[in-house]
Amino acid sequence: MRNTFAQTFYEAAREDPRLCVVVADISPAGAMDKLRTEFPERFINTGVAEQIMIGMCAGMALRGLKPFAYTIATFALFRPFEFVRDDLCYQNLPVTVVGIGGGVTYSTLGATHHAQEDVAIACAVPNLRVIAPCDPAETRAATRWCIAQEQGPVYLRLGKAGEPDLSSGAADPFEFGKLRFLKRGADLCILGYGPALKVALQIAERAQPRGVSASVVSVHTLKPLDEAGIAAVLTSHRRVVVLEEMAPRGGLGDAVKRIAWDSQSRCRIECFSLQDEFIHCYGKHEELLAAHGFSPAAILRKLDM
């Protein structure tokens, strides 16, 4: 996802001289290095200093440029949070804050590097749109949308590297603010975002031989949330499962339950997320997810599949 973002951004930056990237001491992966070489003035490294990364983006946007702030998600959103809130969101400036390694992607680095509450926090701030694509192709589409828009700030939550393709057989194209059906079914619907949707496709596969037809939906836009789309899902399916590599409060699961209550849905809803705790576990990404009770095996077991 990181390389796809960099390639997409680089291609656009060659055409649009207003596009700049402001990083805080993160290595320029993939095409980001080409951007740095070809347009050194538009690749700005503030060093290990995230408040000025966001502050500079605000000043540059105020003067007509289109800056992207780019670093590890915890340092893109948590460390300079009040700068994101006041400088970007209060002033409603078209700046995209790219958070690399959403969730527990940085699985060997400890909880200091786990962006496990980022979606809840970002969604709470007025004017901030929140997008979490599920795979490289969706990252490309989301990045293009961020590049094209001039309305206000965006938090773009990405994984890191090696995410599998989940969307090449999708029923729908990426459309900002709309649910995207990767697969259409009739009985069970799995809603989720980010690379965690890989588990959703596994669930759908297991369900099929049991005569259960499953939909898989990428809820890539967490804010504004496609509430009408979710209400429709709650009407058209008997059972809804929500998957998110995020804290259990303030995310998609809570939103789906609220929409269900407001629309008097009788649908059965089961939510899976990370735990409300900092875990002291170091290993592969899958091992960290398992330590949070968010492994495919644990989810399938709880779903009785």
Binding site: C20, E41, R42, I44, Q51, I52, I54, G55, M56, C57, A58, G59, M60, A61, L62, R63, G64, L65, P67, F83, D87
Partner: peptide, 14 residues
């Protein structure tokens, strides 16, 4: 000051 730094940098780029 951070916003001013961004503004000054943008004016230089332009």
């Amino acid at each position: 000051l951070g916003i001013a730094v961004g503004m000054a940098y943008a004016e230089r780029l332009k």
